[in-house]
Amino acid sequence: MAVLSKLVKWARIKSPWIIHYNSGGCNACDIEVVAALTPRFDVERFGILLKGSPRHADVLVVTGPVTRQTKNRLIRIYNQMADPKFVLAVGTCTITGGVFRGAYGVLGGVDEAIPVDVFVPGCPPKPEAIIQGVVKLLEKLQKT
């Protein structure tokens, strides 16, 4: 059994599929996330694929602060994902709400709605920083 669980852990680290959701940001972080997928950075090297359906994905990449309108949708997408699932929050807004903090329609950071594994600060963070965030997430997975 030990061998099998090792194999599964190896497979999980080698193929994290992501789904990208914008919970109300300004699109800058989205452009950086897309830049990480395109030829210059090409995260498919690590086995990362962008998937359309939450059922297929392992990592939920959230950008932007959580607005009151998208909160329920964010929770629903998180619940639709199959275990084991992880959340990567990209951008300063996902930590505190950023410049939108205190606005009437904004709830705050992503951890107000769903549990977050790794935060990537920056406004917007560079693709290198996003990849670093994914590496941190995989390191966390390695330890468990």
Partner: peptide
């Protein structure tokens, strides 16, 4: 597409489809 493609899973990423398969087998089935 001027990318590199799977690289770090096994030699030249050769085990990538196998890793995907094993990972999906171990995931929750909804």
């Amino acid at each position: 597409q001027n990318r590199i493609g799977p690289l770090l899973t096994g030699p030249k990423g050769l085990l990538q489809p196998f890793a995907d398969f094993v990972k999906l087998l171990a995931k929750e089935d909804i």
